[in-house]
């Protein structure tokens, strides 16, 4: 496996809070990497720096061997890095189908004022995309009329529509009712594996991390405190107690 994204010595502080204090992190092509850690640790900041929305005070980020720091967010997207949001960013007055078609149109170049958005090719691809996400029955609904689970999936579907090589997801299951959470995760895992997308996701739900991640990075006090496969990280009592600040999961004591 080759390195797709590589961060070296990232530093950024907001006032006194060091969100990143010398972060080194490699994302391997094809893997699902989870970033866990307490609220406010700097996990979303990492996504914002990688997508060009925040400039670190020091350090470098290379993607596919090229430095991307200082590039405009739009160019980073065009280079193959897409993201989804903790709070879904949908075009609320458009239908789900139009949202997906707009993302497809954005990938292909928006500049065609004379053919409709829902032309045959875009519509077919949008429907196929929504079908993979299990959203096709909701295609005609306005985006602001969806429940949180569907909104999250639609948000991620729009990022996937850009055909990225690297997808950064900020808490893909937060706000999703616990009953539908695992279904959302299963859908996501299936679609992303099919699309051969490398994924980095920030997540608080350790069950989701255990189910979904190939590797887990623990972000705390501006540093990567631990990095490894989920079975190792999630059963490490020190990580659980000192870094994540949660009680060990039931049954994990025996394993530890």
């Amino acid at each position: 496996m080759s390195v797709l994204l590589s961060a070296r010595g990232l530093r950024i502080a907001f006032g006194g809070l060091k969100a990143a204090d010398g972060i080194d992190l490699d994302v391997m092509e094809g893997e699902f990497l989870a970033i866990i850690g307490p609220n406010g640790a700097g996990k979303t900041t990492f996504i914002n720096m990688t997508t060009g929305y925040l400039r670190p005070q020091a350090g470098s980020i290379t993607y596919d061997g090229r430095p991307i720091l200082g590039m405009k967010p739009r160019r980073i997207v065009r280079a193959g890095i897409a993201r989804s949001f903790q709070l879904p960013q949908l075009f609320t007055e458009h239908t789900v189908l139009e949202n997906a078609a707009l993302a497809i149109a954005a990938r292909e170049g928006l500049w065609s004022p004379l053919a409709p958005l829902l032309r045959r090719r875009f519509r077919a691809e949008a429907e196929e995309l929504l079908d993979r996400f299990g959203l096709l029955p909701l295609a005609g609904r306005r985006a602001d009329a969806l429940n949180e689970g569907a909104r999250k999936l639609a948000d991620i579907a729009m990022a996937v529509a850009l055909r990225p090589r690297l997808l950064l997801m900020d808490e893909p299951t937060s706000g999703v009712a616990s009953a539908e959470k695992m279904a959302v995760v299963e859908t996501l895992a299936r679609v992303l594996r099919q699309s051969r997308v490398t994924a980095v996701f920030v997540e608080h739900d350790m069950d989701v991390v255990a189910r979904f991640a190939d590797r887990v990075a623990v972000w705390g006090q501006g540093k990567i405190m631990a990095l490894g496969p989920p079975e190792q990280i999630l059963n490490d009592p020190a990580v659980l107690r000192d870094v994540i600040g949660i009680a060990p999961r039931e049954g994990s004591h025996a394993a530890a």
Binding site: L90, F91, A106, W111, L162
Partner: peptide, 26 residues
């Protein structure tokens, strides 16, 4: 015709979620 096209629909997108346009590379 313009309003039904991607450019017109993106125009309506400015009203609701301009930031998303940027994150779609537009």
């Amino acid at each position: 015709t313009y309003l039904a096209s991607p450019m017109g629909q993106a125009l309506a997108g400015i009203k609701t979620r301009e930031a998303r346009l940027e994150f779609m590379g537009a």
